[in-house]
Each structure stands twice: as C-alpha cells, then as structure tokens.
Design a protein around this nucleic acid. Sequence first.
DNA 1: GAAGCGTGGTC
DNA 2: TGACCAAGCTT
Length: 371
Amino acid sequence: MTVTWSNQQIKEFRKTLLDWYDEERRDLPWRQDHDPYHVWISEIMLQQTQVNTVIPYYTRFMKLFPTVSDLANADEAVLLKAWEGLGYYSRAKNLKRAAQQIMADYQGVFPETPEALEDLAGIGPYTAGAIASIAFNVPVPAVDGNAFRVFSRLMEIEADIAKPQTRKIFTDIIAKVIDPDRPGDFNQAIMDLGSSYMTAKNPDPEHSPVKAFDQAYLDGKELDFPVKSKKPKPVDVPYVGLIIRSERGYLMQHRGTTGMLAGFWTFPLIKIADLDLGDDVVMATELAQHVTEYLHRETGITAELTPMGGRAITQVYTHQKWQVNLFGAEVLAQDLSHFPGEWVPQSNLAKLALPKVQIKMMNRLGMDPTK
DNA sequence: GAAGCGTGGTC
DNA sequence: TGACCAAGCTT
C-alpha cells in the first residue's frame, strides 16, 4: 500500500534531503551557475544518457555554441557532428529549432514558466520542470526516471512507471513534497539520490540519508520498486552493407531527413527484406547477385560484388538489432543521378557525422574513423 | 497510448 | 551474450 506523509514528515524530509545535498552535491560542469541555457543543454544531453558520457560533450558544445544565438544560427552538419555518438539525434535538431523559437518569440530571452518552456521543440514535462525549477526557482516537480524510482521506493507506489498515465500520480505527490523555497535543489537532490544510494541495481539504502523515509527499504522490499513492465526485445533485421570504392573515394549514402539515423552518412545499407527474395534460403553468392542488380538499378553502377567474409556487423537499437553483411567491390566512379549519395574521399569521411554502425564498418576495413 | 528513436555501461 | 539501465520527447 502506498504510504502517505504528514506535513511534519514532509518538512523533515525536505530538510534531511537538502542538508545532505548541501554537503554531497556532485560538482558538474553545468552546475557552475543557473544560466537557463546551460541548464537546458545539459538536461537535453542527459536524457537517457549517463552523466559521465555527457560531460565531454557538454564542454565541447559550450565552446562551439556559447549562446542561444550561436545555436540558432548553427550549421546543421556541424551540430550533428558535435552530437555524434550521443544518440537520439532528434535531440540535436530540436535544440536548434527551440533556439530559433527563443530568438523569434522571446527576443533571445528564455521563457520562465513550465507551460511556455513545453512549447519549445524537444522540451517535455520533465525538462520544462527541470529548467523552471533550477534556473528560475519555480516550485514544480521534475519527474524523471530517478524521481520515479526514488519516490516509488520511499512511498511504495505500485503504479507501473512504464505507463504514461502514471506520471500524473508522481507529479501530484512530488508537488506536495517539493521544497517551495529551493525547488531546483530539491529536484537535483532527488536525482543525486537516485544515482547514488537509490540506484536501480545494487542500491545502498542502508547508508542513504533518507533511509528513515524509505518504506520499501524498511520493509526489505527495496528491489520490488519501481514497478515497471517489460519492453519487447529488439527484432533482428538483416542488412547488406556495401563497400564500393573508386578513384573518387567511397560510395556514401545520405539517410534522408526522417527515421533512423536521419541526416547521417553511411556506406549504402540495404534491408535484405527490400530485395524481395521470397522465402527461400539464399546463399551468399546468390545474395551477391541480387544485390549487384539492386545496386545497378539504384545507382547505375556495375560492380562485381564479393562477400567480405567475417561475421555480420551487429548494431543493437532500442527496437531493432541490425545484422549487416558486408559486400565489397572496386569500380570506376560515375555520376550518381538520383541516388541520395556521393563519392567521398577517405580523407573527408571524418568530417561527416557518422553513426556507430558506420564506425564499426570502417573498423572492419581497418580504417581509422577519426581521420 | 503505443511505438520509434542511439549509445555506452554493467552484471 | 543477453538483458537491463541511464536526468525523455515526438508522433
């Protein structure tokens, strides 16, 4: 059963949490001030991404784009390159869109209310709450995975946190518990707690500053919370990857503006299901013939494709697991009329924004993706 | 409201 | 190796 707290308990919890935070808060690059631009960029980078991963990206990003104005005017290719390796690349594109909104609608000055913040591209309920509370001291919850985990344990809340409607339950509870005088510190303290004593795996509730408030721990049920339904595992998707080299460089494909890895460049990737091979099991040599015809149809290139051997390159995403089988050929360069790609000299490859699967293909060839 | 969207770390 | 997990948002 969900525990409820008295007003007295709420006050004691706030003091205990904030006293601990004042002593133990992590010193992070984006915590040097409360500039909304700094808070915003860090919060977007931290979505589904760990602190240690974000730190070097954040530092580089601030040198490249020091202000909202710089970001609004950013070159999209430079922006994607700065985000390369962080994943969820729509975050980067939304950052630029939101920066343009701030310049156009607010003369470059950040709006302060959660409602106005949520109207900016890429800012949802969590990020709006984080910016409003941390940068502007607005007493609103910032309900992220940490808040779900911490409060589900403190109060033994059994609602499934994987379900969208569960957010309201937590938002309402945290709205009552949040410290009205220090909402930003309160929200950040919950996050620090969630990434130290109250982690998902191997938590240490025994030494937590708020263990007296942790009902799940007191009942010996720390790991029973949060309740979270499972997601299906990613499905296998077989691909062919083409290593086509000419005197003008490698054949590279631009992945368009929507869907997986939008805006990125890779060696041409063909979903084997798109080759319409029927249900028969296809041998590598036979597959090579089909791909050769496909390549000719799409690019006009005539090439004698050879399977490159070795295991398929594997790339796991949230919903798919790509298995990329490599085929290669040396050809004479020709103009690519309607194919969305270009010949790229090896010396220019590193200037493009390259996703991990492309890095892995290059590594297989013994190429250095950084030059 | 479910599904799509990346990558790196951990056990 | 597989199965989660990590400061979610958009459609």
